[in-house]
């Protein structure tokens, strides 16, 4: 069973890469083994990992979602508008709740737009999501008049700076999201159907799978998770810059999913693989930056990882 062996290899490949990265860092990166380093990495990887989970589901249906960064920007731009409004000043608790719930609802609507384009109108996923990729960030900037919104709001900032049991809140959030979606993929009918649609759409349809609803569903989920990630970015920075939030996130998310073992032709949704992929990509970035290598070089390294991951995937297919 050659397929099985290489599968094991790929699985361990990710973990081995992680171990190697950790050892290299311990050896050469100054102050690597400090809590502060861990916190920085967790807070930076969290948004990538959250978006990557949604991206994994979309790719599992043989789709792709380029709009994740733009959706983050919309959600991230909306939140301060709400909690800085007069309404929120009058009713702080309600205002805070609305500043989290409303942006996520709006994000879900963005996902519905993508999903309808792909599943009901038959637009190719890359084009369908390109529409919002372009327009979404524009919408976010129009909402804020292109201004940088800075704020001091301890309640909202908890999303980005809060700690539970000494670890960053968003780290726990990633864990919860990953567990929930792992369960959905492996234990629910919806999850099974995602894999069936991606694995063989015709067969899925013939066995009564509501292919369109499943496809719409994954784009809605992806957008919803992107919305959450957008809120976290804003909370970390205590500022919202619609031009920057989630910039190039689609690439990081796709890369994480691929490094995590998601097949681009669909049919596989390794949720924890995607989280691991996000961690690896974050660690590579961090290793290079912490050792004084320029950001541009880090980009090249990231591309190298993707090439390697795709290569391993191709090997597995044979």
């Amino acid at each position: 069973m050659p397929g099985f062996d290489t599968k094991m290899l790929t699985k361990h490949g990710g973990l081995i890469a992680l171990a190697v990265l950790l050892l290299i860092n311990i050896a050469i990166t100054p102050n690597f083994l400090q809590l502060q380093t861990l916190f920085v990495n967790i807070s930076q990887v969290a948004t990538i990992a959250i978006v990557a989970v949604g991206m994994t589901l979309v790719i599992a249906t043989a789709g792709i979602d380029l709009s994740v960064g733009a959706v983050m920007a919309v959600a991230g731009a909306l939140a301060p508008l709400i909690f800085l409004s007069e309404f929120a000043q009058a009713y702080p608790t309600l205002g805070l709740a609305a500043s989290i719930v409303v942006p996520i609802l709006v994000a879900l609507l963005c996902g519905l737009f993508n999903g309808v384009l792909v599943a009901y109108l038959g637009v190719q996923p890359i084009i369908a999501t390109l529409i919002f990729f372009i327009s979404g960030r524009g919408i976010a900037q129009v909402l804020t008049n292109g201004n940088l919104q800075t704020f001091s709001h301890p309640g909202f900032s908890y999303l980005g700076t809060g700690k539970i049991l000494g670890l960053p809140f968003q780290g726990w959030l990633v864990l919860v999201i990953a567990i929930v979606f792992f369960y959905i993929v492996n234990r629910t009918m919806f999850g099974r159907r995602i894999l069936a649609v991606g694995g063989n759409e015709k067969a899925a349809k013939l066995t009564g799978t509501p292919v369109r609803r499943v496809k719409t569903g994954v784009y809605v989920i992806s957008a919803g998770l992107s919305g959450i990630a957008g809120l976290i970015v804003v909370a970390i920075n205590s500022a919202s810059d619609a031009a920057r939030i989630g910039n190039l996130m689609e690439l990081d998310a796709i890369a994480s999913a691929v490094v995590g073992g998601t097949l681009l032709m669909g049919g596989k949704a390794p949720i924890f693989g995607a989280v691991l992929g996000a961690v690896i990509i974050q660690l590579v970035k961090y290793t290079l930056l912490a050792n004084g290598v320029a950001d541009e070089v880090a980009l090249i390294a990231k591309a190298g990882i993707i090439v390697l991951a795709v290569y391993v995937q191709q090997g597995r297919k044979e």
């Binding site: 063989n200 067969a203 097949l263």
Partner: peptide, 13 residues
């Protein structure tokens, strides 16, 4: 092949 099996899935699935 084209309309029956989902090749990546297990026999059970």
């Amino acid at each position: 092949k084209a309309e029956g099996i989902v090749p990546e899935m297990s026999v059970r699935e």
